[in-house]
């Protein structure tokens, strides 16, 4: 009898694994044509290409270590709130093995970051965000996630943006002088 029980558990556990990542489950369960929802998927090969094209070492390392980045967004105010609640329900129903890392509950914005580590190279992260403009962002990242490098990235991006703005300003000035 014991052996049958073990075999059945094995069977069900393997079926559970097949259930897929958070974005897949979310899209399967809640996405329909009536409500506006955008989905962006970036896989391993694209991440490698992106790593080859960037000069920033932290970003290069981050891209190389990741397996996928999947994003869901919704601009609709009404739908976003609904989707955010549904995403939280989905986490508690099917992704209860994820541990909450960050929980921000401000008056206008909400954000939850959940994390699961299977082993060193197989880690998964889910970010559920509802910003002040009621815009929904769901991010699912898998691979080797280096939090130290990622937390520094925001500063890098702001520097990049600033340097891009400066470059554009210089170009504009040169153009004006030439004219």
């Amino acid at each position: 009898m014991k052996i049958y029980f073990i075999i059945l558990s094995l069977l069900f556990s393997s079926m559970n694994i097949f259930a897929g990542d958070f974005v897949t489950r979310f899209m399967e369960k809640y996405s329909d044509n009536k409500q506006e929802i955008n989905n962006v998927n970036i896989g391993r090969s694209m991440l490698e290409k992106m790593a080859n094209q960037t000069q920033d070492e932290d970003l290069k390392k981050t891209f190389n270590n990741l397996n996928s980045i999947r994003i869901i967004t919704s601009e609709s105010r009404k739908d976003s709130k609904d989707y955010f609640n549904k995403a939280q329900e989905l986490v508690s129903e099917e992704f209860a093995d994820f541990k909450e890392m960050v929980s921000v509950n401000e008056r206008n914005a909400k954000m939850n970051v959940l994390f699961k580590k299977t082993d060193e190279k197989n880690q998964e992260l889910i970010l559920l965000g509802l910003d002040a403009d009621n815009k929904l962002t769901i991010i699912s990242i898998s691979g080797k996630i280096d939090f130290d490098s990622i937390s520094k990235l925001s500063d890098t991006f702001s520097k990049e943006t600033q340097s891009e703005i400066m470059e554009e300003n210089i170009k504009n000035e040169v153009n004006e002088q030439n004219e």
Partner: peptide, 13 residues
């Protein structure tokens, strides 16, 4: 898109 996602995560962290 990837940098936007990572930026959001970075800010949360």
């Amino acid at each position: 898109e990837a940098t936007l996602a990572l930026d959001k995560l970075s800010l949360a962290l």
